[in-house]
Design a protein around this nucleic acid. Sequence first.
DNA 1: TCGCTATTTGACAGCGCTGTCAACCACCGT
DNA 2: ACGGTGGTTGACAGCGCTGTCAAATAGCGA
Lengths: 338, 338
Amino acid sequence: MRSVTIDDVAKAAGVSIKTVSRVVNREPNVRAATKEKVEAAIKELNYRPNQSARGLASRRSYMIGLVYDNPSPNYLANLQAGMIEACRDNHYGLALNPVTYHAEDMVEQVMHWARQAFVDGVVLTPPLTDSEALLEALRAADIPFVIMSSRGTAGAPAVLIDEEEAAYQMTRHLIDMGHSRIGFIKGHPDHYSSRCRFMGFEKAMKEGGLEMPAGYIGQGYFDFASGREAASQLLSQPTPPTAVFASNDDMAAAVIYEAHSRKIDVPGELAVAGFDDTPLSRQVWPGLTTVRQPIRAMGRMAAEALMDAMTAEGRKKLEEAGEMAIDFELQLRGSTVR
Amino acid sequence: MRSVTIDDVAKAAGVSIKTVSRVVNREPNVRAATKEKVEAAIKELNYRPNQSARGLASRRSYMIGLVYDNPSPNYLANLQAGMIEACRDNHYGLALNPVTYHAEDMVEQVMHWARQAFVDGVVLTPPLTDSEALLEALRAADIPFVIMSSRGTAGAPAVLIDEEEAAYQMTRHLIDMGHSRIGFIKGHPDHYSSRCRFMGFEKAMKEGGLEMPAGYIGQGYFDFASGREAASQLLSQPTPPTAVFASNDDMAAAVIYEAHSRKIDVPGELAVAGFDDTPLSRQVWPGLTTVRQPIRAMGRMAAEALMDAMTAEGRKKLEEAGEMAIDFELQLRGSTVR
DNA sequence: TCGCTATTTGACAGCGCTGTCAACCACCGT
DNA sequence: ACGGTGGTTGACAGCGCTGTCAAATAGCGA
């Protein structure tokens, strides 16, 4: 019942434990044939290195951390899934740290956790990505990090999609569908994303020579309830918009909800567009036109970037890395297209 | 720049490292005076035990694990949140292990992960809770576990709500609303929950002397797509039901979706009920009548039960513990009540 | 063929901590 | 005063792995 150790693998492969260690850690200077032998033995025995032992010997924890503040369950689940995929490939573990962005001692909390969990790197989600104090503390503690955000903070490697461009394209889509009275529901002001998405909207509207009356611009907070309020405001205008672009799917679903309850036909009388392509966008009727963000792939990329940064050159590369952009995709569904 | 070790503390306190270890781990049989000296030194030097070293030497990780197979993001997020709350209180970490229930080597995978991550205990979510092989392997490996499930497996401590009773009450609610042609959409057959929910439905229907024609019973898999198919089947009956009780919210939302697309008024012509009280149930129109499960509290309870089991008596208590039931609550919304 | 360098491999000493076990001590009853 | 008893302390051997450095081997030109 004893678990498989590096010695077992070494014996099985007919090499020294050090060579096994090299293969596991992807160190250079291992002959291809040797590497294959070792990998076969690892697979055969289903060997998994003991993290505690690795951590002790190498003074690393082989853990990366994910710090977040109350994201949508869907975002969290996908991000985690992507990160775990990457972690598995690299024999790393994932440590979670939910925090409160607005807490007085948020930075302290995170740093304390990072020290105790000994994480080798950290992924930050919005809006934590916008806390300059936190980024500074991580830099000071020499803990590599990647932010999941459009924030163009210098020196902060970021995995992102071009949110402004996506919002621009979505707005273009609405304009192309013949709409000229287009409303917009902004996202949470703590999130830089909200600004990006609004800027993309603005750009397309200006380019199309369309007006953006104040009554057509609602303030939301990325949740359903605030979306309903904003939608209610927009739809109560003397001349209501014929299309509403909400900064995320929850709020867009809220627009549809409001429309239903007012017997307004979607998309006949009101087209609705969202952002994120959450499952919800497929579960409301009609299906929601939205922007697909490959969150899972982004999580994977962020985790990989961190783990690559464990070597000296990798570390340098991460520091120099700017934005790592992934493609988004417009998903056109029944809420804008009959 | 070297960090403070147990040796430093021992030297400062004028005792052996073993005594420091005793104090840190709250072991008995340390004289009060000695303990104070050591504690003073710990504070003075700001000593924090190295988790890797502790883990390696003690073959414990101060981590509990969560094993799951593709649950709904909402379930996962809430369960995690509850478990993390409990972990924080006890200076434990949470390790995640997504697996594939149907994978040939699922049990092996979990066991290797458990050994590698050294988790001190494991929480299992459905349908993994129903794998007798997995439970047996965990018992054999002497790893304490708690299942999140109605499964009445002897010897498996479970955190749960009385799902059969909940389904019974929900069906009663539909009957009380005057419905007699009530359809049901079953959940994924891999999940024991599905059976419980159906049994509750059946009980209420029999008690009310109502018929359950085969055409009114659809098979779903807990996801939206399968819910649509089942809904489509039910609504295509020559005499369709006037109410549908779906085994979870995603499928209930699918029923509403189908109703909308067929211009069937909800709840006027068709009442719909779900199960779980996910955010989705509040985000479709009309709001979904459903059963609220306090997942977060359940996660917290499961994690606490595991960490309590780290002591000898606690372990015994866990082994003897049967079901730990938490109250559910019917949430009546617009999909059944005008 | 030999000698040289570059690549590949292995022996071994810890990393910081806990478990084991033996030594030590104080205090009891006789 | 003595041995017995149980609480208290410390010496030491690993836990499974990586870093260091030396040894072995391969590759190549002359």
